[in-house]
């Protein structure tokens, strides 16, 4: 018995949550860049009226299709609107939709998936067939169908995109739940008289959180992209309100007149998507007890 205690005294101290976060970030310096980038975009979206040099809706026919200059850093579009100001205001729509749609989808989808995976049987079959039905449509097509039925507008886009993403979360959550449910420690919890609700909250959710969070960051990127696509098709943010998506749509019509709207909004979407993906990888590492130091 003494041998057991001796060896236990040599155990390294358990690192705190903060220490784990610090170590993971040090291992992935790109996380800092990603977080900074996201913070910058959030700041820009919040302070849009203060920093935008022009009214994003103000048209001027005497200065259409201008290249970048000191007056218009990203030039002007075919209506003579300042592209930079439109992008700054457009970040509001794009970012909020990018975060909100996957979040709503994650909450609904995870709930459905966990219920299906945990309880199984007829409940699982009903939910799974429903999810199969939704997943048989490509996200964009599903979004278009729902958007066409509901019409455009900010909240409708959130609903549309969330509905399009729900099946993905539900499928991952169901598969993960079924895997975790088969773990001996879940059986041990049942044997210890732990109620089903507590097992779900204490054992299932924490153990499936990592892939769900990563999925959320991935779909954040897709949400921004899909919002752009919907706007591009005229089903998303309604003109003349700017979003990165409809800046690209308007810009494409006039790509050879002035490529700057497309380039600017494209770069913004790419960098936000990249930042969220990097952040997702790091969150996955922090949440995973096996990879965290």
């Amino acid at each position: 018995m003494s041998a057991v205690t001796e060896r236990l005294d040599l155990l390294a101290p358990e690192p705190s949550r903060l220490a784990i976060v610090r170590m993971v970030i040090l291992n992935r310096p790109s996380t800092i860049a990603a977080v900074c980038l996201i913070l910058v975009f959030v700041a820009i979206a919040t302070a849009a009226p203060l920093i935008a040099p022009y009214d994003p809706l103000a048209q001027s026919y005497i200065k259409i299709n201008q290249s970048p200059s000191w007056e218009h850093w990203l030039g002007t579009d075919q209506f003579g609107r300042d592209v930079l100001s439109r992008m700054i205001y457009g970040s509001r729509n794009s970012l909020i939709i990018g975060v909100l749609a996957p979040l709503v989808a994650a909450i609904i989808g995870t709930t459905l998936g966990v219920v299906a995976g945990f309880f199984g049987g007829i409940i699982d079959r009903v939910i799974s067939r429903l999810v199969d039905l939704l997943i048989s449509f490509p996200e964009l097509l599903l979004a278009i169908i729902i958007a066409a039925a509901l019409g455009g507008g900010f909240w409708n886009i959130v609903i549309v995109l969330a509905a399009a993403f729900v099946p993905n979360f539900a499928r991952v959550a169901r598969a993960q739940t079924m895997a975790v449910r088969a773990e001996p420690y879940v059986e041990a919890a049942v044997a210890s008289g732990v109620t089903q609700l507590r097992i779900i909250m204490r054992h299932i959710i924490p153990n499936i959180a990592a892939p769900i969070v990563v999925l959320m960051t991935l779909w954040t990127a897709s949400a921004i992209r899909l919002e752009a696509s919907l706007s591009f098709l005229g089903l998303g943010t309604q003109a003349p309100q700017p979003s990165w998506g409809n800046i690209i749509r308007d810009g494409l019509n006039n790509l050879f007149g002035s490529p700057w709207p497309v380039i600017g909004a494209g770069l913004a979407i790419t960098s936000v998507v990249l930042a969220f993906n990097l952040l997702g990888d790091t969150i996955r590492d922090v949440l995973d007890p096996e990879t965290s130091p």
Partner: peptide, 13 residues
């Protein structure tokens, strides 16, 4: 119950 697998039967979290 005492379980066979000393690794799987304790939640890592």
């Amino acid at each position: 119950m005492v379980f066979q697998d000393p690794f799987g039967s304790l939640s890592p979290r």
